[in-house]
Amino acid sequence: MTMPLSVTDCVVRSDRGRVLLSVPSLELGPGVSLGIRGPSGAGKSTLLYALAGLSDRAEGSIRWGDTELLALSTARRTQFRAAWIGMIFQDFLLFDELGALANASLPAMFAPRSDRSALKTRAGAQLAHLGITALKRTVDSFSGGERQRVAVARALSNDAGILLADEPTASLNRDAADALIADLVAKVRNNGKTLIAVSHDAHLLDSMDQIISLTDGQIETPSGARPA
């Protein structure tokens, strides 16, 4: 299950009022993967965080399906994220002291009691799919590629329809990055999920359905459609 994205006149300003991001229009069909590229400081992550409902300073309209994200309270946006969005970060942001399964099923700690066991089961299944078998071993002993796989399993543990990834391959070596890209794209395609990935990695961008370029907070190529 996923949903279309529709961004209209979205502006994000800094604390001092400087415009960090200005997106007049961005449309994305359900289950489509979108790559966001651009130089550092162009506002790529700002856009990603705004799409996740994490930004306190976004104005305009960010609509996921029927949900107008910016009209929701912080608490409701958090709920929306918990239900619909999975996030992946450049440096994984795992808890080193926990095992792979505990990390991947982290959302179970704050999920309603009735959902916890399903969530853990799903996290375990995702880890298995991604080739992680050492479920108990603390993740500080894992390689970068393995750690990012755990992070992917975590993002998918709530069965999110939308995956938001911030430079998911930037901390990985080429082989690990390519393997992760293959797995990630396969997961998204096979399950009809939406993937939005900020990246400098040409291999990752090449695997996306669409690419946009951001410069100085503006979309340069409104919709660089690629052949499917």
Binding site: L54, A75, L93, F95
Partner: peptide, 16 residues
């Protein structure tokens, strides 16, 4: 702080 922000990003309520 980052880990706590991560939890929020994963959908954890502020009360968590």
């Amino acid at each position: 702080q980052r880990q706590l922000a991560l939890l929020r990003a994963l959908g954890a309520p502020a009360r968590f």
